[in-house]
């Protein structure tokens, strides 16, 4: 059996796990929608679509949606299930099987990617009443789903690293909070060129900025390939790093 087949089997099991705990999906949807509603409610009149160039004719909710998508993809529940597996002994059962160490890591990340696609699709539908549409069309919607899901895989990989290293749900949860500063050190409320200089520097150094800008370009404009290349490049590089670090950690796991 190949590593890919094993990863698919373990990914299927992780998806079943998610489906059987729908309550864990509630915050994944509720909190991003909450931020979308609140931020749109507070700043929607400051940035009217008719006079705000960076909205390209859409509402401010369209500008805010990428933040909510990234937030939804950054809950990293897979890592908490991994901690449960470790604490309950099932992870050792899998490690004592002839399963590729890469499959042990990638299986859960595949499931995280699938969950990312579903959650993104749901959030896009929820955003419709706020006047949001995807300007880049069907191709744009597909790219939006893929990019958000890939970010979910990257962040899931980061959370799994904490889970494997700490073997503790509390530490893994705390590690997830790292995302909040990263989310706010971005052009979250206005484009990068309108930020103050220190914030602009921080946003430029923050990889989340490029993923957010790629998502935003898909929602507001026709495909901007240079922006998309940067966004996909960031998740590609970070994804490879996360998988490599995870596999290395599982191989040396005692």
């Amino acid at each position: 059996m190949t590593t890919v087949q094993q990863a698919n089997l373990l990914g299927g099991r992780a998806l079943r796990e998610g489906l059987r705990t729908p309550e864990s999906l509630a915050p994944t949807l509720f909190i991003p929608v909450f931020f979308l509603v609140v931020n749109f409610g507070q700043a929607g009149r400051i940035f009217p679509s008719s006079t705000t160039d960076f909205l390209y004719g859409q509402t401010y909710a369209a500008f805010q949606l990428p933040s909510s998508l990234l937030l939804a993809a950054s809950f990293g529940s897979a890592a908490l299930y991994l901690v449960e597996d470790i604490e309950g002994g099932y992870f050792d059962k899998l490690r004592a099987s002839p399963v590729s160490r890469s499959a042990l890591v990638i299986g859960r990340l595949l499931a995280e990617g699938v969950k990312g696609v579903v959650i993104t699709a749901v959030l896009l539908v929820i955003a419709l009443p706020f006047g949001v549409s995807v300007a880049s069309g069907v191709v744009g919607v597909v790219l939006l789903l893929v990019l958000t899901a890939l970010w979910g895989v990257v962040f899931g990989g980061f959370m799994q690293l904490i889970a494997l290293k700490s073997r503790s749900a509390a530490a893994t949860n705390a590690g997830g909070l790292v995302f909040f500063p990263l989310l706010f050190l971005t052009p979250n409320f206005v484009p990068r060129e309108l930020l103050t200089r220190p914030m602009e520097i921080a946003a430029t150094l923050n990889p989340v900025t490029y993923v957010m800008e790629a998502l935003r370009s898909l929602i507001l404009q026709d495909p901007q390939w240079d922006v998309l290349t940067r966004g996909f490049g960031i998740v590609g590089v970070l994804g490879v790093i996360m998988v490599a670090l995870n596999v290395r950690l599982v191989r040396s796991y005692d």
Binding site: R16, G89, Y90, K93, P98
Partner: peptide, 18 residues
């Protein structure tokens, strides 16, 4: 070795959701 052994550890290694 993993192909030839069966392992049941102290903590029953099961996935409660399956």
């Amino acid at each position: 070795v993993r192909r030839r052994i069966g392992v049941a550890l102290q903590e029953a290694g099961l996935d409660p959701r399956q």
